[in-house]
Amino acid sequence: MRNLFAFLAGGLFGAGLLVAGMVDTTKVQGWLDVFGNWDPTLAFVMGGAVLPMVFVWRIAARRERSLLDLPMPQDLPKLVDRNLVLGSLMFGAGWGLVGLCPGPAIGALGFGGWQVALFVLAMCAGMAVAPLARRGLDQLDTENDV
């Protein structure tokens, strides 16, 4: 059941990304291009997704276990640290450069040709080396502390 619902959530997520036009890199780059022909579509997508989720989080907060009797997410650390800021800047830079973020890139694998496949491959390689980058950054911190 757990895997079936994960499949359904993934499928609905992908369908939403396609319907919203988020697999079209010109829409994403059009949103980021404030000095060009600005495209506000992304704000409608984000708003459409965030608003219902505000209420869903309230329902979720009242539950001890999920509908499939699985644990609900833990409260998150509130820490804003260097990795969050630096990582988000790096992610944004890559996103702006070609107009793909992880969800739409994976969702477009089936029809996006070799270009999307190459991007996803490079993204997976980046994810594989990220723990090393994290350790390297932490090491810099301890050296600077001395």
Partner: peptide
């Protein structure tokens, strides 16, 4: 771009 997105999102 793929490398930046991969490393950045995980960091």
């Amino acid at each position: 771009a793929g490398l930046l997105v991969g490393i950045g999102t995980r960091l």
